[in-house]
Design a protein around this nucleic acid. Structure first.
Lengths: 236, 236
DNA sequence: AAGTGGTCTAGACCACCGT
DNA sequence: CGGTGGTCTAGACCACTTC
């Protein structure tokens, strides 16, 4: 049972997607939603806050909440963390596992994971495709003591759904560092590009709620097909 | 007079920066802050939310709020929108205006600004340096009807501080699209790189609170010196 | 069982927008 | 001036962690 503010957010989001507010681009007032859904105004405000962060709407004090042009389905939204499938809903998203093994952290991985060299880890190399175009190559390492079990079947699907639901892993937060570099020859082959083309790279570090790092990954993206989007409000 | 929750956030932030919580990495409880500052618990929660978004702390239900390793001064934090000076506090940040003119939107700018071709705009080209290293080249366009006035002196300093304080412009929100591409030869010269090296590019679109676009810019970053950071929590 | 963060309410008052 | 979002309160109850 998800909390009320998320339910309200989903309902309003569905309305937006279905162009309910098309005429004026203006949402109902907070009081109106509070009545409509039988919740308090603060709950409505938390719901709207989610939509603001997802880039669906913007708020104007004294005036109302308005629908924005929202970039649909062409960008990786840095606000959402659920993975490609939700960013590219309606498009064909495919994952190929290129390599899966149980190994130990070398010096570079140990540094990124802040763990000793030689710590047991799972290594997964995957190629992601969107609409049959190679999209990104991802190298992931999972700390074995923390994820307990992983195999090639699980890795083929959504690793995070499995870790969260089946393993009950308490995932806390993640850092992503975004930068550009020359494309290496191996990734170039996989992405159908040339060595030394530009590459858009994301280094991802995922922490448990207790602050331990259990997953680091590096995604090398196809520079022609991948753009990231960040929506900002001028507050906080 | 800024709202209470921002004041509380600043105080706690100062405590964190001054290593007040170093021993345990644990903040006070929400009730303790509520008492300490004479505010309600919800106000404390809004304050902590800001710190979470800035990547200073993370929350664990039933346990407490904990200080994180925070990346200081090496990355552009995508959460903050205040510009380079605040990201690289303590380092030398320099801006050189390469070009300033009053002109009209061509088809590409008109498309990005969603305005008619021929709309009067200010064009500014600037080179940014950090610690004497070329950092990025930025082309900006401002819609003349909306910013009213701009000149070479203002453009040398913080354009946004001027627009906000002096022009009382109601800036609402901004989109940033991040991608990689080949470096063009002009930018390569300015950044002290070679043509066709990788480039990390950010297309920025800034809206007024009424939804109008008044500024678009494209920043071409030095791929060796620039990394962007996004901190995410596993909620919303 | 006690401590602590997460959700939710009902209501008050302020700040800003528009007519 | 009325409408609408922004801030703030005091208190209740739930969910999870820790002991």
């Amino acid at each position: 049972m998800s909390p009320k503010y998320k339910q309200v957010a989903s309902q309003i989001e569905a309305d937006i997607v279905n162009h309910v507010y098309q005429h004026t681009n203006k949402l109902l007032t907070e009081d109106e939603y509070a009545n409509k859904y039988g919740v308090s105004r603060n709950t409505v405000r938390k719901a709207i806050e989610i939509l603001v962060n997802k880039g669906y709407v913007y708020q104007v004090q004294g005036s109302g909440v308005f629908v924005r042009d929202h970039y649909n389905s062409d960008y990786i939204n840095l606000e959402k963390l659920q993975g490609l499938t939700s960013d590219f809903s309606g498009r064909k998203v495919e994952t190929r596992v290129l390599h899966f093994e149980q190994t130990v952290a070398n010096d570079e991985v140990a540094e990124r994971m802040k763990c000793p060299i030689g710590t047991p880890v799972y290594f997964v190399k995957r190629l992601r495709l969107v609409d049959d175009h190679p999209f990104s190559v991802e190298d992931s390492y999972f700390r074995k003591e923390l994820v307990i079990y992983l195999d090639e079947n699980i890795v083929q699907k959504s690793i995070y759904t499995y870790l969260r639901s089946d393993q009950k892993l308490a995932i806390g937060f993640a850092d992503r560092v975004i930068y550009a570099d020359f494309l290496d020859s191996e990734s170039a082959d996989l992405l159908d590009l040339n060595e030394n083309d530009p590459a858009l790279i994301v280094d991802n570090t995922v922490y448990l709620t207790n602050g331990q790092i259990f997953d680091v990954s590096r995604s090398i993206h196809h520079f022609k097909h991948v753009k990231m989007l960040k929506v900002s409000n001028i507050k906080s």
